[in-house]
Amino acid sequence: MTVGSRRWAILLLDYNLDIPPHAMALSPLPPLACLQAFEASARYLSFTRAGQELHLSTSAVSRQISQLEEFLGRRLFVREHNTLRLTPAGETYAVDVRRMLELCTSVTSSLMARVVRSRLTVSCTAGLSVFWLAPRIGSFIDANPDVDLRIIVRDHFGAVSPAEYDVGIFYLRNPEVPGTYTRKLFDEEVFPVCSPTYLDGRKLKPVELLSCTLLVLEDAERSWMSWHTWFEQAGLERPALNQTIIVNSYPLIVQLATHGKGVALGWNRVIDPLLEHGALVRASDSYATMGGSYFVTWPSERAETPAARRFREWVIGQTVAP
């Protein structure tokens, strides 16, 4: 190994040694631009071609070479009769500088290629996860390849702990929740839906729906509007539900409705994609609300991560328009 190469090896590899920062200064060290100009000029044996590669004028390259020679205290090139050749010192130095620049390029590219991954846990209801989030989430994933996404399903907000999630999407009647920030997305509107063939395109009055098979969500927490509540808001007090299918999963209720097994309650925005694609139709023009809304939520007692903030902003952007 030459003296020059030993010097570059020490400069480039000292980060692997257990040496205090003050024990070895990076000196003498010429300007990087001068080293780049020298390496290209040594490779082409031409200041003009080196300048073309570096997007510099010939005179600019010549000045950088002169600056480097002055810094080193020795000549690197012999200039004669419009030709350029390396001096013995220049030949040795060119090999070492080339090796140093290649290593610098390699470690820089390696560092830039590393993706610092972020973990993001999102919580929402089963209906939202299947019918609203799943069709849209691809755009967030494509725009955030550094985020590892985890989705946990909870059918009401009280079933999820702030320690479990980063961002939530939930139906709330009261947005004042201790330990939680909330941002309103859209209001609730609940209406009957069924398959296009179940009623052959007819829309029924609320009282007429009582003769249909009603798909009922079993909700122990009473977080969601029930058929009894919906009929009461439609002006029918304590109606008797003649024929029902009771299910404890809202996505399954929707699947039963799309297969013509009865009439289900649909929530706006959640069920809209199925209406738009014709899998479901409204079974009545009547609708009801318990005064609640859908909110994006996030814990207030810990710092919000950049990934959580990006997801929250993405959710809000998705709900600006219907």
Rank of each mutant, 00 (worst) to 15 (best):
Ala283Leu: 08
Thr48Asp: 07
Arg43Trp: 03
Leu12Met: 13
Trp224Arg: 10
Leu280Phe: 13
Thr108Pro: 01
Val270Trp: 03
Leu103Val: 06
Arg150Gln: 11
Trp314Leu: 10
Val130Arg: 14
Val122Arg: 01
Asp142Phe: 08
Val263Ile: 15
Tyr15Ser: 14
Phe170Trp: 10
Ala279Gly: 11
Phe311Pro: 00
Arg202Pro: 01
Ala60Val: 07
Tyr44Glu: 14
Asn268Ala: 05
Val130Gly: 00
Thr108Leu: 15
Trp314Thr: 12
Thr87Trp: 02
Leu17Phe: 14
Pro239Glu: 08
Ala279Asp: 14
Ser195Leu: 01
Val122Gly: 03
Pro31Phe: 02
Val270Cys: 12
Val315Thr: 07
Trp267Ala: 09
Ser57Asn: 04
Tyr181Gly: 02
Leu252Glu: 13
Asp146Gln: 10
Phe140Gly: 11
Trp230Ala: 10
Ala240Asp: 08
Ala321Glu: 15
His81Leu: 08
Ile246Lys: 07
Leu274Tyr: 06
Cys194Met: 05
Glu189Val: 01
Thr105His: 15
Arg269Val: 14
Val263Gly: 10
Gly51Ala: 04
Leu236Gln: 06
Met112Phe: 00
Glu301Ile: 01
Ser284Thr: 03
Phe38Tyr: 10
Leu13Gly: 13
Gln233Ile: 05
Thr229Met: 11
Ala134Val: 04
Gly317Arg: 07
Arg49Trp: 02
Gly90Pro: 10
Met225Ser: 07
Val97Thr: 12
Ser123Thr: 06
Phe231Ala: 12
Ala159Glu: 13
Pro196Met: 04
Arg43Leu: 05
Cys104Pro: 00
Trp224Asn: 09
Leu56Cys: 08
Glu232His: 12
Ala264Glu: 14
Val116Cys: 01
Val78Phe: 02
Arg222Tyr: 03
Tyr287Ser: 15
Leu209Ile: 13
Trp267Tyr: 13
Ala94Arg: 06
Ile141Arg: 12
Leu236Val: 15
Ile245Asn: 01
Arg150Lys: 10
Val296Asp: 05
His277Arg: 11
Ser293Ala: 15
Thr92Asn: 08
Met24Ala: 12
Arg136Trp: 00
Trp227Lys: 08
Ser106Ile: 03
His277Pro: 00
Ser249Gly: 00
Asp14Val: 14
Ile245Trp: 00
Arg119Ser: 11
Ser57His: 12
Gly262Leu: 09
Ser226Lys: 05
Tyr15Leu: 07
